[in-house]
Every structure is written in structure tokens, then in C-alpha cells.
Amino acid sequence: MSAVLIAILVLLSLAVVFGLVLGFAAVKFKVEGNPIVDQIDDLLPQTQCGQCGHPGCRPYAEAIANGEQINKCPPGGQSTIEALADLLDVEAVPLDAEHGEESIKTVAYIREDECIGCTKCIQACPVDAILGAAKQMHTVIVSECTGCDLCVEPCPVDCIDMLPIETTLNNWKWTPPVPGIELIATDTGRTITHASNKEGTPS
């Protein structure tokens, strides 16, 4: 019996020692807040469009940190999902169509001779990118517009258009080369979509 007793005593003393270590660690290394939220927020496109079902990008970042799906951000699109998947070490999933589809980048444009100066769009703009005053025609500061299209719906005279950002010599981009023949049926997906909207490189 003494062997059992000794074993129990040894275990007990070990438990005491490690309990103390654990207690110390719990106090000393306590983590305040959740730094991951900032990192997630950094990856989100900051359009503040609310398509994810959260009022703004940061609330969505917080929701993701609490385990929400990462595929609810249409403005960010697949690249954002992949960046998030990379950060959170989860599998990248396709965009949830329920929240909208990824589309080309747009900016709001107010047809100024139709604007009646109601300021509704100014109130809707999350980044203060619309300039104007009551009874005065409004205009969009293009460089600040995130393309969230929140201003479109409130407009009583439907004078706001979401226009795709025009390609000029300054923002023109080289198209990715068509991946060679090594591409197989199962790894189509992204590369194919990228390749499909290009022209003229060697194929």
C-alpha cells in the first residue's frame, strides 16, 4: 500500500507545484482585448457598405474574430477572403452569394442637373465623400468614394449612378499572362477568371 500512498503524495505535490505555476501564468500573461480584430479590420476593404450584415467593417471584423464566416464581403471579393483565410488559418471559401457578388470597382456619380439638393445621400455616405448643402446640387469627391453604393437608394430622384472606375494610362495594369497548358481542369477557378478578361498575350 505504501507504494500507492507514495504515488498519491507525489502526484499531490506535483499538482500543488503546477497549480501554482498555472495560477501565476493566468495572472501574469493575461491577454487584454483581441488583437486579431485589428488585423482582420486591416484586411477588409473599408467600404463600410454593410453588405455583410454588419454596420461597418469593424463590426464585421469583430464578428469574424468571434467565428463568423469570412465570405460575406463582396467588395473585398475572393482576394480578401483568401487574405483572411491566410490570417486565420482557415480554408478559403467562395463568396457567399447571399451578400452580393463581387463586381468591378465603381464610384458614385451624381447627375448634377437632376440633383435637387435633398442631402439624403450626404447623410448616407459613410465616408463623407459627398459635398453639397440643402437646395444646392451635390457632387461626389471621387478620390474618397469607396463605391459602397449606400447613397443610391436614398436618392429621391434616382440621380446617382455607380460608374465603373475608368482605366487610364495611370491606373492601367498589365494583364496576367495566360497560364500555360499545365493548367488542369481541377485547378481552374481563380486563374481562369483572371485569364478570361485579358487579350493578346501568348497563348
Binding site: P177, G200, P202
Partner: peptide, 8 residues
Amino acid sequence: MALIRITS
């Protein structure tokens, strides 16, 4: 003459 765009 069908000129095409090819990258260098």
C-alpha cells in the same frame, strides 16, 4: 494586316 498586342 491584323496587328495583335503581344507583350515583350
